[in-house]
Nucleic acid binder design. Sequence first.
DNA 1: GGGATCATGTAACTTGTTACATGATTGC
DNA 2: GCAATCATGTAACAAGTTACATGATCCC
Lengths: 205, 205
Amino acid sequence: MSLPHAILTALLEKPSSGLELTRRFDRSIGYFWSATHQQIYRELGRLESEGYIRALPAERPARGQKKSYEVLPAGREELARWTSAPQEPRPWRDALFVRLRAAAVVGTTGIEADLRRHLTLHERQLAEYEEIEKRDFGPGRDSAQDRLQHLILRAGIDLETFWTQWLRNALTEFEALPDAAAPYGSGPPDDGVPDAGGGAAAGRS
Amino acid sequence: MSLPHAILTALLEKPSSGLELTRRFDRSIGYFWSATHQQIYRELGRLESEGYIRALPAERPARGQKKSYEVLPAGREELARWTSAPQEPRPWRDALFVRLRAAAVVGTTGIEADLRRHLTLHERQLAEYEEIEKRDFGPGRDSAQDRLQHLILRAGIDLETFWTQWLRNALTEFEALPDAAAPYGSGPPDDGVPDAGGGAAAGRS
DNA sequence: GGGATCATGTAACTTGTTACATGATTGC
DNA sequence: GCAATCATGTAACAAGTTACATGATCCC
């Protein structure tokens, strides 16, 4: 249930049309909650029908015509309610770890190159965040808003730092691997990792 | 498309029934790709109809009767193919950052307590991972499988370390905040964070 | 007037979530 | 025999993805 609230936040920061929101998501909120324009239009429709936002005057035929929205008091209240309510952290999901676990059974062919590619992507993202930090959060910018937003940016920087370090470490491990290209346990299908008492990653499987 | 491949991996490690898979996911693979039993049964049905897995003999009426599956050669090939194919890293999504960004507009009431709660949860998870590391990855366990699975566990440990550190830092920031309970920019709805040229978190919004 | 681009949408599908239904087995 | 639990499922919905459709505007 985060997308509608991300949209309410963006609209409170500045009333916008669907496409403007899409672009702002690409540059900013999307760094931690991405959304396509189709999702955004759908959600704008719902928020409007629920009375949380309304289209600004100039209500022309619609299709092809720019349509800006602003947040209504009920929308602001809903956002405040949602923001202050406790929420469970969602378990993190990452396909890369599924792949590594699979590689431990069917072999690591091809993964190393992709890890290297991911490393480059994360290095690039980290550099982008650090650029933003230098540009937007110099000395003097320490209002409450600035601090909160800087906190979010720091999370992005720290996460990308984690990724670059972990990937470098993983690549080092791969180089030390006995025979990285061969499938492990390629005999009968049940001689892979022992299910109980053994060294299953992240717990016994 | 990770769930079917996570299931194939688990079944290669050890043929299992739906409920056994669910339990193994809870303890192990679910740490980086969670799944409910409904998802798993649906996916098992698909994998079977696609010829990637098959039910082990004893094909009794089904409902209420335990039904174990094993991976067929086609399933192993599909898993190897998927594992070695390049994939884009999915953008991380976390509602907590949406909430913080919203809090910068509608006020931080209630968030601090929830941050503290999250910190406790992440500390607990970190301790659990470290326990597993101590138990399952002592000296001597350095086969190719062990190394790969240890790598995954290290990612879990590093991520939880990130969270605990970031949350502690965030809580410190909150204590220093001028008036944490009051909404910011509570005048006209469009006087929040300036959209251009200002200090929007993670980029200009 | 015609192509590029801006802008708003529809439709179909896949994945994930929530709630519930039903049969089998075990222990008392 | 009956409650608890093991085990497999169905149904309905919500969220996210992918592909496409259509109107408006601008510039040549």
